[in-house]
Write a protein that binds this DNA or RNA. Structure first.
Length: 572
RNA sequence: GGGCGUGUAGCUCAAUGGUUAGAGCAGGGCGCUCAUAACGCCUUGGUUGGGGGUUCGAGUCCCUCCGCGCCUACCA
């Protein structure tokens, strides 16, 4: 029994997330958390909404709500969707929580005390009509290079040239279109990552088991050009964690907040504190997950995220933790994912292109999505969602291979023996062979799951399901019943036990269907099959069960066509 | 431009430098009849993006060219 801390990248508060966001962090993290729990480990699985920054303020302005109200409402929406998908967070926090305010200010104070904060005066574009400083990409204008009239302040999308906002001809606010812009002097805090470069570099080099995708991104930032650059960690915004030096005011920084990427990773820690507060625990209860001097030395910490999040988790956040000089638990393994594309293109919130979490749950149960997304997780490269592939995979894997297995064995038993596990006969050589085959595959499955090899785990689980159909085909209880009813009873008893076994093994992928299978088998016994032979005797003769409803209804061609049309998005 | 990744069967993907490059789906055939027209068995598909090199041996390592994706530090 080990202790595992698991965090998923924080979904941004602005709007409903799409399936690509889901499969890039929260869903595989949930798979891993569920697996470790069922193996008997102590797990702390943390996620939260990332609520600060300009986009949240703009989204709130659009709906006319105060930004705090908007975030509270959207947090509720996202939490409900997370529940709908069966995401088993121990706590789903908010980066706007008082706990995160305090911790973020604490880290800033420690960093300042240790000399890792610099105050820098710089010039930024201020929009008088919007009443706010504008991030580079919120400034539009004509590209001095190619003449494109919708170039952004950071880069021209047309000619890909890197720009500075002051390069733009006829600059205007991308928010309001106002041209009433001026350059103002403003003071900001910078995290002196350059001073921590060697320590971060050594730390990255010690992670020899990390995927190349992860370490190469980190190394690029460390080694490119003049090396790791300092990073601004404050912004001129209203919504965010007010800049304070620990619990003291920070002279000269009044009215400013910390940059969202400074406070967001700290929320991993703060959300654990929120968990403690919400569950009547003490500070020591959450600190034993995070402080190496307070019990976290034996914790294994795993982070899940999309590849775009890697620099912040390999550089900025570690810089914050190292620079604090305090013994915080650092990440042990980063599992990063590529992107999911939709039918040959990108998911697009603005164009309504692709499937979003709320719509997904409207049209199909969560397990359909969980299974397809996880069994096609973008681990080695980007992967593509198409309705045809989705329909074929789900119908074949879930309805035909697993669902139909449950159906055929329960219905056969009901018609020949009634709705109790039948008595008679003894497991023989065929059953021993099945146990052997199952054991080999289950051990392989455990290995893939422990290694977070998501697609291989799914493939192995499916092969385990197939073994049940192979057994039934060769045992043929419908034939044996005619000549040797006792033997048929034994075969059916084994089949029913396989359903329970499959429910246990499949729960990390399809928790809702697994629950339905256990309920149908009339048992709450979900112990992991360390001993497969023993696991196949869990349901004894005479034990009552029920024939469940169809576990997975098939997706019809008509449904597929309708959904493809509905989610294709507006044409430009 | 620079960096990283990727390219294997119609599709989705495997393959510590080591037999004849393997699975699932789709396609074809046979079997079974308990089951959601489901299941099982057999089977057709490959010049591993192109070219060159190293090696006894290359999908794998090196060079080069081509395609695709991502990142490039103030979106988060």
């Amino acid at each position: 029994m080990a202790r595992h801390l698991i965090t998923s990248a924080l979904p941004y508060i602005n709007g409903i997330k799409h399936l690509g966001n889901l499969v890039g962090s929260q869903l595989p993290a949930d798979l891993y958390a569920r697996f470790l729990r069922t193996r008997g480990h102590e797990v702390m699985f943390i996620c939260a909404t990332d609520e600060h920054g300009t986009p949240a303020e703009l989204a709130a302005a659009k709906t006319g709500e105060p930004v705090a109200d908007y975030c509270a409402r959207m947090h509720g929406v996202q939490a409900e969707l997370a529940r709908g998908f069966g995401l088993s967070f121990d706590h789903y926090g908010r980066s706007s929580s008082p706990q995160n305010h305090a911790l973020t200010q604490h880290f800033a104070g420690r960093l300042a005390d240790n000399g890792y904060i610099a105050e820098v005066s710089e010039k930024q574009v201020y929009s008088v009509d919007d009443g706010r400083f504008l991030p580079d990409r919120y400034i539009e204008g004509t590209c001095p290079n190619c003449g494109y009239d919708k170039a952004r302040g950071d880069q021209c999308e047309n000619c890909t040239k890197q720009l500075d906002p002051t390069d733009l001809i006829d600059p205007r606010s991308a928010i309001s279109g106002s041209t009433n812009l001026e350059v103002r002097e403003t003071k900001h805090l910078y995290l002196r990552q350059s001073a921590l470069k060697d320590q971060i570099s050594d730390w990255i080099d010690s992670k020899t088991d990390w995927p190349i995708l992860t370490t190469s991104i980190a190394r690029k930032w460390l080694d490119d050009g003049e090396g790791l650059q300092d990073r601004g960690i404050t912004r001129d915004l209203h919504w965010g964690v007010p800049v304070r030096r620990g619990d003291q005011p920070w002279p000269g920084m009044e009215g400013k907040v910390f940059y969202v990427w400074f406070d967001a990773p700290i929320e991993y820690i703060a959300a654990t504190a929120e968990w403690a507060d919400a569950n009547g625990k003490t500070d020591a209860d959450w600190r034993r997950w995070w402080r190496r001097d307070e019990g976290a030395d034996d914790v294994t910490y795993t982070q899940f995220m999309g590849k775009d999040n890697v620099p912040f988790h390999t550089l900025s956040f570690p810089a914050t933790l190292i620079g604090s000089g305090e013994p915080w638990r650092m990440v042990d393994y980063i599992k990063s994912f590529n992107y999911l594309t939709y039918d040959g293109g990108q998911f697009s919130t603005s164009q309504g292109r692709g499937v979003f979490m709320d719509h997904a749950l409207e049209i199909l149960p969560a397990d359909y999505w969980r299974w397809w997304l996880l069994s096609h997780a973008p681990e080695s490269g980007d992967s593509e969602f198409t309705w045809e592939n989705f329909q074929q995979s789900v119908n074949k894997d879930l309805a035909d291979v697993l669902g139909n297995f449950v159906s055929r064995i329960t219905k056969f038993c009901r018609s020949k023996f009634g709705e109790t596990v039948p008595e008679g006969g003894q497991y023989g050589p065929e059953e021993a062979a099945l146990v052997e085959a199952l054991t080999a595959r289950i051990r392989a499955y455990e290995g893939f799951m422990a290694a977070m090899d998501v697609r291989k785990s799914a493939s192995e689980l499916r092969a385990i399901w197939v073994l049940g159909n192979e057994y039934l085909q060769s045992a043929a209880p419908w034939s044996t019943f005619k000549t040797d009813p006792e033997k048929a009873a034994m075969q059916v008893r084994l089949g029913l036990n396989l359903i329970r076994l499959y429910a246990v093994l499949s729960a990390p992928f399809i928790p809702f269907a697994s629950r339905a299978m256990l309920d149908a088998m009339g048992t709450g016994d979900d112990t992991w099959p360390d001993d497969v032979a023993a696991a196949l005797t869990a349901l004894p003769a005479g034990h009552a069960f029920t024939v469940p409803d169809v576990l997975f209804a098939k997706i019809t061609d008509e449904q597929r066509a309708e959904w493809a049309e509905r989610f294709k998005g507006v044409r430009q």
